[in-house]
Design a protein around this nucleic acid. Structure first.
Lengths: 334, 334
DNA sequence: CTGAAAGCGCTAACAG
DNA sequence: CTGTTAGCGCTTTCAG
C-alpha cells in the first residue's frame, strides 16, 4: 500500500504538504503542487479512508435510508438512489445503504460510529417516527419528502400538492367537470406517506375550487380492471382521471380501452410519474414529471453545503412541470 | 463521544481488555466480560469506525456493485440488495452502494482506500469486463451470477440453466410438443448477461432433448400484445410458454386472453420469477422461484467465510424449485 | 509558503 | 487471564 509518506518522499516535501496540496486547505506554491500531483499519479496514491476519518473527523460517506416499504414503486425509488450515488461521487463521497430492518437505532448506530457524515432519508411519513431522532442527532440530514411539521429539518421534494392541483387544473381548462384520482395502494396512505397525502390534498383542493365533482381511489397493483369498472359505475359523468400509481398506469389505460372508453376521446388521463414512464404508455400520457434525478442531486448538494457550514433553506419545493401528451383533450359533450 | 478508554476506566480494566471482551479474540473471564458489557451499556459506547478500520485493517463494510443497467427488473434486483444488507448486518457489517457510473475503477478506488473489506458484484456478463480486475484485486469478492470462465472466482446464483430445463420438462410431462421462451429485453442478451443466456441454453437443450419444437423471443416491456400475436402467427401448434421477463408476465397472460386463448386450457404458461410475482398474476403462474433472498444471504455468508480465511466452494448453484400453480395443464388435443 | 510533531481511537503484539 | 505499548495513516496545530 502506498501512503502519504511515500508520496512526500517522492515529491521531496513533507507529508503535511502533501495533505494540504490535496485538500487545498492552505496555499501551496504552484510548483510544489505540481510535484505532489505528479508523485500521486506515479505512485497511484489513494488516501486510506479509515485514517482520514480518524484524523479528519470526516468519513466522506453519506447514508441513504431507504425503507423500501410495500406499495412503493421500487424503480422510482431507485432513480432517487442512483442520482444520490452519482451526485455524491461528484463531491468525493460514497453512499452507505441503510434499509429499515434495524429500525430507528440503525440511525443512532451509524451516527455514533462516525461511519457517515450525513444522512439522506427517504419515504417520509407526515408524522414520521424518525423525526425526533433526526433532530437530536448531530449529524446533518436531508429528507426527501415533507413531513407535517418540518421545522428544524431540511426537506426537498417535488411540490406534490401543486402537482395534484396542476393535473386537475389542466383537466378543468379542457372543460372536464368530473374527475377521479387513482392513487397509491391503501397501505401507503395508512402509513400517512407524505407525498401520497399531499397529492390528495392538491387534487381535492383544486377540484373543489374549480367546482368539479371528484373522488379518490387508493389502488392495489393488479386491480386496474376493478377500479376502471368501479369508476364508470359510480361516477358515470367522469371524463378526467389523475393517476398517481406508476405500475397501474398502463393497465388502467388498457382497462378503459377494454371497457369501450377511448383515451382521450372519451376520457382524459393525466399522471404524476417519471417522464420516461409517461412516454412509454401506448397512449403517451400528459403528466407532471417526477424529477427523481433532480431531487436526488439537490438532496446531496444541500447536504454538502450543510457539511461546509453554509446555511441552506429549510424547504426546497420543486415546482411541478407538466408535459402535454396524447392522453388529454377537450371534453366532448355527448 | 465515548471512547474505549472511558469504558475501560468505568469497568476498571485496560483498553485492550475491553477490545478483546468485545471482539472475543481472546479468552476473558466471565466476570470481567460482564463488567465490560455493563460499562458499554451504561455509557452507550460504540467503537469509532475509522479508528477500528485503521488499527484493525478491517472496515466492516461490504461494497455492493449494482449497475442497474437497462432491461433489468429493478424490483427483483432490489430484493437481492435488501437481502445483502440484512444479512450483512447480522454479521455486523454495513453495505456501500456502488453503481457503475465510475466504471471499473470505482472498484479500484474502493479497494485502494480500504473503505470496504469485500465486494459483491451483481449483473454479471458471460465475458464480464470486471473479471480480470476482480481477480487482480486482493479484496475477496463474490459474484451473483456465473460468467463463462468463473475460474478463481466465487460465484453464487440460481442454476438458471436447470431452471430453463425444469420449465420445459414440466411442459413436456404435460404432453406439450411446441414451446416458446419469452425472454428479457434484447439489450440484456446483447450484453451477454449471464443469467439470461443460461436460461436460453437450458430451455433449448431440454426442448431438443424432448424432441419439442421451440423458439426464443427476447422481448421489450410493453410489447406483450405484439409477441403474443407473433407467437400465434408463427408457431400455430404452440401450447407451452416459458416467461423469463417479470414485467411482461401479467400483460402477456392478458394478451393471450384477449386473443382468445385460455390459460391453461389452450396454453400452459410457466415462468422464472419471484414466487410473489407468480402468485399475484390473475391466473397464478406455475414457476421456478427466483430465490433472491437466499442468494443474497449466501453471497454474504460466503464473503464472511472468505474474510475469516475459511475455504469456500468456487461455485454455489442453487437447484431450481418449481411450484405448480393454475397456469399449466395437460395438452388437450384439439 | 513549508515542516515537525502531536494526536485521532482503536487493535494486536508483546510481556507477564 | 490481563495489562502496557506501539503503531495503523492521516490531518492539523504549532513553529518557522
Amino acid at each position: 500500500m502506498v501512503k502519504i509518506t511515500d508520496v512526500a518522499r517522492r515529491a521531496g516535501v513533507s507529508p503535511s504538504t502533501v495533505s494540504y496540496a490535496l485538500s487545498g486547505k492552505r496555499p501551496i506554491s504552484e510548483e510544489t503542487r505540481q510535484r505532489v500531483e505528479e508523485a500521486v499519479r506515479e505512485l497511484g496514491y489513494r488516501p486510506h479512508a479509515g485514517a482520514r476519518a480518524l484524523a479528519g473527523r470526516r468519513s466522506n460517506v453519506l447514508a441513504l435510508v431507504v425503507p423500501l416499504r410495500s406499495g412503493l414503486h421500487v424503480p422510482t425509488v431507485m432513480r432517487f438512489a442512483v442520482s444520490v450515488v452519482t451526485t455524491a461521487r461528484r463531491y468525493d463521497h460514497d453512499v452507505l445503504l441503510l434499509t429499515q430492518e434495524e429500525g430507528e437505532d440503525g440511525l443512532t448506530r451509524i451516527a455514533d460510529t462516525g461511519l457517515v457524515d450525513a444522512l439522506i432519508v427517504m419515504d417520509v411519513a407526515l408524522d414520521d417516527l424518525r423525526l425526533p431522532l433526526l433532530r437530536s442527532l448531530d449529524l446533518p440530514s436531508v429528507l426527501i419528502g415533507f413531513p407535517a411539521a418540518p421545522e428544524g429539518l431540511t426537506c426537498v421534494d417535488l411540490d406534490f400538492k401543486a402537482a395534484g392541483e396542476a393535473c386537475v387544473e389542466h383537466l378543468a381548462r379542457l372543460g372536464h367537470r368530473s374527475v377521479a384520482l387513482v392513487g397509491s395502494p391503501p397501505e401507503v396512505y395508512m402509513r400517512r406517506t407524505a407525498f401520497a397525502q399531499r397529492v390528495v390534498q392538491g387534487f381535492t383542493t383544486a377540484a373543489d375550487r374549480c367546482g368539479m365533482s371528484s373522488t379518490v381511489h387508493p389502488c392495489e397493483p393488479g386491480a386496474a380492471r376493478e377500479v376502471a369498472e368501479q369508476l364508470l359505475r359510480e361516477q358515470p359523468a367522469l371524463t378526467g382521471v389523475v393517476v398517481h400509481n406508476e405500475p397501474l398506469l398502463q393497465p388502467l389505460v388498457d382497462a378503459f380501452g377494454q371497457l369501450g372508453l377511448r383515451v382521450p376521446a372519451d376520457l382524459s388521463v393525466t399522471a404524476i410519474c417519471p417522464d420516461e414512464l409517461a412516454e412509454s404508455v401506448h397512449v403517451p400520457i400528459t403528466s407532471v414529471a417526477l424529477p427523481s434525478t433532480e431531487v436526488g442531486a439537490r438532496a446531496v448538494e444541500l447536504l454538502m453545503k450543510k457539511l461546509n457550514g453554509t446555511a441552506v433553506p429549510d424547504s426546497t419545493l420543486l415546482a411541478p412541470k407538466m408535459t402535454e401528451r396524447a392522453s388529454t383533450g377537450r371534453r366532448t359533450v355527448a
